[in-house]
């Protein structure tokens, strides 16, 4: 099985690159013949990727979340998978290239540096931890997809404002759709992050008796959760629309990235495993 894992590890960046190329080609050329091919390619890539994650879990006897490069491959998958679901549900395909690019970058880094770790901390073999991390990663993938749609919203907004009718104007869906995609991605991300936090609250005191609720990672994730929560409420209750909602999601994404970096790199936490 180890040979298969190594082969797929090489194959995945190539497949993500091909998928990204087809999405980009379709975005630039808008040719009907690749309209469905790109979805098929994404499906094949994700299917192989899920097999890869399963094989790793079985072979190394732990979920692939024990180091940064395992996390990166899970992140690449969860981004691609979340986008795939969004594309299936909405049938809006103009933004795929921008999201698959993130998967490609994460997978390339992961494939280059990932190691075959058999010996890991016992706590990292816990299944509940797997669900906790996976839901958090999927949640952050949702926020990333929302941010991509948010940036695309601003690009199209600006082009329409200044009467520039180029590629962005021609290929992207309407502002209203981009805003919806942004909001739904935030909503899905928020729900998944909430699940992750709840599992954390149940499982962490059991796994770590010396748990501290003023841990930097817990505080940072709470801030992220709060920013997105307020953003969702303003949309649902105050009926905010457009730029304001997008700004909130971009703000949330920025806070999420900064807090993740800060808590992982600079702070010492019980929550740091690698």
């Amino acid at each position: 099985m180890i040979e298969t894992i190594h082969s797929i590890n090489v194959l995945l960046p190539i497949l993500y690159f091909l998928t990204f190329s087809i999405y980009l080609y379709d975005f630039v050329k808008d040719e009907s013949k690749v309209f469905n091919v790109k979805r098929v390619f994404l499906f094949i890539t994700l299917s192989l990727h899920i097999l890869y994650l399963l094989f790793r879990t079985i072979e190394f006897n732990h979920p692939p979340i024990t180091n940064k490069f395992e996390i990166f491959t899970v992140l690449a998958f969860s981004l691609g998978f979340a986008y795939f679901l969004l594309e299936l549900l909405t049938d809006i395909r103009g933004t795929g290239a921008f999201i698959v690019l993130f998967s490609l970058v994460f997978q390339v880094i992961s494939s280059l540096y990932i190691q075959d770790l058999i010996e890991v901390k016992e706590v990292l073999r816990n299944r509940l931890l797997g669900v906790h991390v996976m839901s958090a990663l999927l949640g952050y993938s949702g926020f990333t997809i929302a941010a991509v749609h948010g940036v695309l919203f601003f690009m199209l907004y600006k082009d329409i404002k200044i009467n520039r009718y180029g590629l962005i104007f021609k290929r992207l869906p309407s502002l209203e759709i981009l805003e919806k995609l942004n909001f739904y991605s935030v909503l899905i991300g928020f729900i998944l992050l909430t699940i992750s936090i709840l599992i954390g609250f149940i499982w962490l005191p059991v796994a770590f008796p010396d748990i501290s609720y003023v841990d930097p990672k817990l505080i940072s994730v709470s801030i992220v959760w709060l920013v997105f929560g307020i953003g969702i409420l303003t949309k649902l209750i105050a009926k905010w629309y457009g730029k304001k909602v997008i700004i909130f999601s971009l703000l949330g994404f920025t806070v999420a990235i900064l807090s993740l970096l800060a808590s992982n790199i600079f702070a010492d936490s019980f929550h740091s495993f690698y």
Partner: peptide
């Protein structure tokens, strides 16, 4: 064409 890039429906 411009209207359809602003509004979806």
């Amino acid at each position: 064409q411009v209207i359809e890039k602003i509004f979806a429906n």
